[in-house]
Design a protein around this nucleic acid. Structure first.
Lengths: 239, 239
DNA sequence: CGAGACATTGAATTGCCTCAAGATTAGTGG
DNA sequence: CCACTAATCTTGAGGCAATTCAATGTCTCG
């Protein structure tokens, strides 16, 4: 990542991120963890703040400790598309490049475990498991992006909204694909962000949520909190 | 790649692919090139034939020698989306996985330089430059996929068609982004394939091409052959 | 309690799709 | 070389899904 705008809080060594073996840290040995710990900093960003901008220089990388980050592309006339979401434990940043190809914005209050570019790149050269891990991560992102291209290119508004609800459900309960169960969670995005992720207008997102609620595929409390009584029924509505 | 259906022609050692340092071969040393040459096979596929299917086992990888390949995702009800295109010198196949996450189909007659999965994976373990190269390639694909997500999520039909024409122009003349020039080429896809790539119907693609022709942004001869008098004007129409 | 942000709902419009009919092109065999 | 056929492409008419514009409703937080 890059162009880190001043965090709202004094940086301090980020122990949690390492201790948990979260994000990339699982690929490091003890010595490297110690090296990393000397250079990482816990940083916080408030909802809506920009972590880095498109076409800016890459100056640092990070693991997400908590919160949700939108990866966005913006057209000259202001139209924007969310091209990816990052959750806790995800790695953020584009290795093997000098400038960013998209911008990143906090979709909620966010805690990061941030490290300077040079540190990570040095480790990358010394540490094949780490490089392998980042590659696997990149390929997973590629699969996700292509999966979402189908949603954007070929699904109806109703299917897109259902796809999003299912995507988040899968994230909350990774083993979900096998079973049909009830699940409840808080939506990580506003209607506006959902619209930008789904390639729809805010109003259409709202209408489709209302429709899914009318069909009792989802129960919505407080705008943000949703309950899915039957995830399999939701999956079918997702196309 | 995987589940290679029987090629139409007797396989033979693929010298071109190595000699040209095309695709992944530029990352190999002389000894590895020789090893690779013993295991690669030149194969051909006719338009429309399937190279491998979604969720099939990965049994081999390949470099594209000539022709164009569609990477596709298909929904249960038959709707389909082209999520990527592969041209000459591109590498095909998903490393670090056991099964494919999409299907691949020849969009034209295709020549491949194919290699067994085990060979490539062994080289990958021995050869960091190769692994690095595949990672850079994967990240480039990720950038492309995200770029296209904007096209699918936020652009009008007219802009999508213009974006496609510009994408191919960029491929034919990589340095195009800087200058405004005239360029001519053959469309690598049928209207139907373009529609599946653009998330549109065939008819809409056709209408938008007619409209671009009426605006003299493109001259079309013989359905397939196009001339772009001014690539900068095209780029502006692409949004 | 009031203000501002966020979300829902309605009405009218529009852009793309579907269905249907021709036109063009490419391929085939006489 | 031409006629014939099948495939591909273009064009038109009508319908529908999603957008835009506008108003109302709801939640959050000083």
């Amino acid at each position: 990542m890059s162009n880190i705008h001043p965090p709202e809080e004094e940086p301090r060594a980020c122990r949690n991120c390492n201790v948990r073996h979260a994000g990339i840290c699982g690929a490091l040995d003890v010595a490297q963890l110690q090296t990393l710990a000397r250079h990482t900093r816990a940083t916080r960003y408030k909802v809506g703040s920009e972590l880095f901008g498109d076409e800016t220089d890459i100056t640092s990388y990070a693991n997400v400790v908590s919160g949700v980050i939108k990866l966005m592309k913006v057209l000259e006339d202001g139209r924007q598309q969310v091209v990816g979401l990052k959750f806790a434990n995800d790695f953020i940043g584009r290795v093997h490049a000098t400038s960013n190809t998209l911008s990143a914005e906090a979709a909620s209050d966010v805690e990061l475990c941030q490290m300077p570019r040079a540190i990570l790149e040095a480790m990358l050269d010394d540490n094949r498991p780490l490089e392998r891990r980042l590659m696997v991560e990149a390929l997973r992102e590629l699969d996700e992006a292509r999966e979402w291209m189908v949603t954007l290119g070929r699904k109806s508004a109703a299917e897109r909204v259902a796809s999003f609800l299912y995507l988040i459900a899968l994230h909350v309960r990774p083993g979900l694909a096998q079973v049909s169960t009830e699940i409840e969670y808080d939506l990580p995005l506003t209607r506006s962000d959902m619209a930008d992720f789904l390639g729809l207008s805010i109003e259409t997102v709202s209408r489709q949520l209302t429709e899914l609620r009318r069909m009792e595929i989802v129960v919505i409390r407080n705008k943000r909190h949703v309950t899915i009584p039957d995830t399999e029924r939701l999956r079918q509505r997702a196309g």
